[in-house]
Simulated scan of single mutants.
Amino acid sequence: MKNFFTIIGGMGTLATESYMRILNQRTKTTKDQDYLDYIIVNHATVPDRTDYIIDHSKPSFLPSLVEDVKQQSLLQPVFMVIICNTAHYLYKEIQAATDIPIIHMPHLAITTMKKQYPQAKKIGLIATKGTLADHIYENEIKEAGFNISLGDQAVQDEVESLIYDDIKVNGSVDKEKYHHILNTMHDKFNCDVIVLGCTELSLAQEMAPDHGYDVIDAQSIIADKSIELGLKLRKGEEIDFSKIY
């Protein structure tokens, strides 16, 4: 197979499935051959990203992801995506392991937000405590010129419960809990836009969308970008990766 891309997933598996559903549903098709060419790596045993970020004595996820990108590089995909926001804590180290471009999901999400909501004043960020601790999204949002709110401990407890208890453990989305989180960030913390900084939250948005709030869904955005780039590959067009954000 030529002119394909690689998806590094499994962090977690249900979120990766969500990305693939969105990818395939949004690709315009009339026959089997219209779907995009890609390889999915569902590396479910990658050590927990948040555990390592919070406590560096815990197993690092870097060796697993470096191994993945090196293995995939032998097959020569044109680009890769990593379907885990928190894993981008070590993006530079992962990218350094290969010459194949890896699309930076948080950077893509916030550059898209800046174009879509230029008049927004305050941006809410909901994510794992690992993503909050590594400041990836916080720095991106501030560098884009926006104020940011992380909510409070009560919101974070709800977010963690939704991600871990409901989705990762039980494999389900608590609609009321998800909508309550969005409502709190909007009403209590006056957030114009809410960034979903975890792919499990993207799964929640897919399964229980609340259209009453403006959200930036990083996984949805990178799925759209994957389709855009995948169709360029299909047409034999050159891609300037310095201009994709």
Results as ranks from 00 to 15, higher is better:
I181R: 12
S172H: 14
T27S: 06
A154M: 06
S242E: 14
Q71E: 12
P118K: 00
A208K: 07
L233K: 06
E158P: 03
V69H: 05
A97C: 06
G145R: 05
D157V: 07
Q205M: 10
I22D: 06
Q156H: 02
S202H: 06
L162T: 00
E176A: 15
G236Q: 09
I126D: 09
T199A: 02
I227E: 07
I227G: 05
K225M: 13
D68G: 03
Q71H: 09
S57I: 01
V193M: 03
K232E: 11
S73L: 07
D192G: 13
T13N: 08
K70I: 08
A120M: 08
G10N: 04
H180G: 02
K115R: 13
K235G: 06
P209M: 11
V215C: 03
Y245K: 00
R49H: 02
K2H: 07
D210F: 10
K129D: 10
Q25A: 13
E176N: 14
N42S: 15
G151D: 07
M11A: 02
H179E: 14
I123A: 00
P47M: 08
P59I: 03
L36E: 04
G151I: 02
H186T: 13
K188N: 12
H135W: 09
V155G: 06
K121L: 09
V195I: 14
I110M: 07
S57Q: 11
I222S: 09
L65T: 07
L23R: 01
G236C: 06
G212K: 10
Y38H: 13
A97I: 02
H56W: 00
L75P: 00
Q153P: 00
M1Y: 04
H107A: 11
D55G: 11
S57C: 04
A218Y: 08
Y91P: 10
Y89S: 12
G236D: 05
I83R: 01
M1C: 05
M11G: 03
D51A: 14
P118E: 01
Q95I: 04
S60W: 00
M20Q: 12
K2G: 07
S220T: 07
D48Y: 04
T27F: 01
D55A: 13
I141W: 11
M80N: 02
I39F: 08
T27P: 00
P63E: 10
E176R: 05
P59Y: 04
L182F: 06
L36H: 06
D192M: 11
S18A: 15
D68Q: 12
D152S: 10
T131P: 02
D34G: 01
Y178A: 10
Q72V: 01
V66I: 15
P59A: 08
M105Q: 01
G12I: 08
D166G: 05
T27A: 05
I8S: 15
S202M: 08
E140F: 09
K92M: 13
D174H: 10
K175A: 13
I194R: 08
A97D: 02
V46I: 13
N42A: 15
V155Q: 07
A204M: 06
I8V: 15
N170L: 15
F241N: 04
Y117N: 04
N183H: 14
H186Y: 14
K188A: 03
L233D: 05
A87Q: 01
K232T: 04
A154G: 02
L125N: 01
L182K: 10
K168S: 00
S202P: 10
A218D: 03
V66Y: 06
T27L: 02
Q72T: 02
T13F: 11
K232H: 10
D34T: 00
R234I: 12
K58A: 10
